[in-house]
Design a binder for these strands. Structure first.
Length: 154
DNA sequence: GCCAACGTTGGC
DNA sequence: GCCAACGTTGGC
């Protein structure tokens, strides 16, 4: 199976690419959306590459690259009443929420802003540019991924 | 801070 | 199963 490509959103005030660079790897906890969960549970494989996107940032955009280093396993934060991600409906015997681990690959020299992505006709199919798209874990086509890397290195 | 788009909840 | 109300996301 060829590697697949993804885009994952994070608010930099919550967890930024700099945090990932410092930590080297992290568990992607707190996703509470079934579609995003399903991608992490069913489709994301070790070695898959991830575009790291800063949402609610100035400007919003893709800031770097990460790699899946641990496939789906239960999100412990759902069981922790102290966590802001606590979900009383998630049963430890049948966890509702599954996440992956990702590791830092590199930070881009420049932000590929949402505006840059919108201006690039080759990227018009990306979910992230579509109005109202709120999916925080989304698949990216190989050709889209390659175009993003070209822009990052340009 | 505003608000449109979306997902979830819960009454019926 | 429908759908109105509500909460959240996230660009602007």
């Amino acid at each position: 199976m060829a590697i697949q490509y993804w885009l994952m959103k994070s608010e930099p005030s919550a967890y930024s690419i700099s945090d990932l660079k410092r930590d080297k790897k992290t568990y992607w906890d707190g996703v509470r959306n079934y579609q995003a969960r399903n991608f992490m549970r069913d489709d994301m494989k070790c070695g898959d590459l991830v575009l790291f996107y800063h949402s609610n940032a100035k400007p919003p955009g893709i800031v770097g690259l990460a790699k899946v280093c641990q496939e789906g396993y239960p999100d412990q934060s759902a069981f922790d009443p102290e966590s802001k991600y606590f979900d009383p409906k998630s049963n430890p015997n049948h966890p509702t929420w599954i996440h992956v681990d990702i590791q830092f690959v590199r930070q881009f020299k420049r932000i590929i802003s949402l505006n840059d992505i919108k201006k690039n006709i080759k990227l018009s199919s990306m979910k992230v540019v579509q109005k109202g798209s709120r999916l925080s874990v989304q698949p990216v086509l190989a050709k889209e991924f390659e175009e993003i890397l070209c822009m990052a290195d340009a």
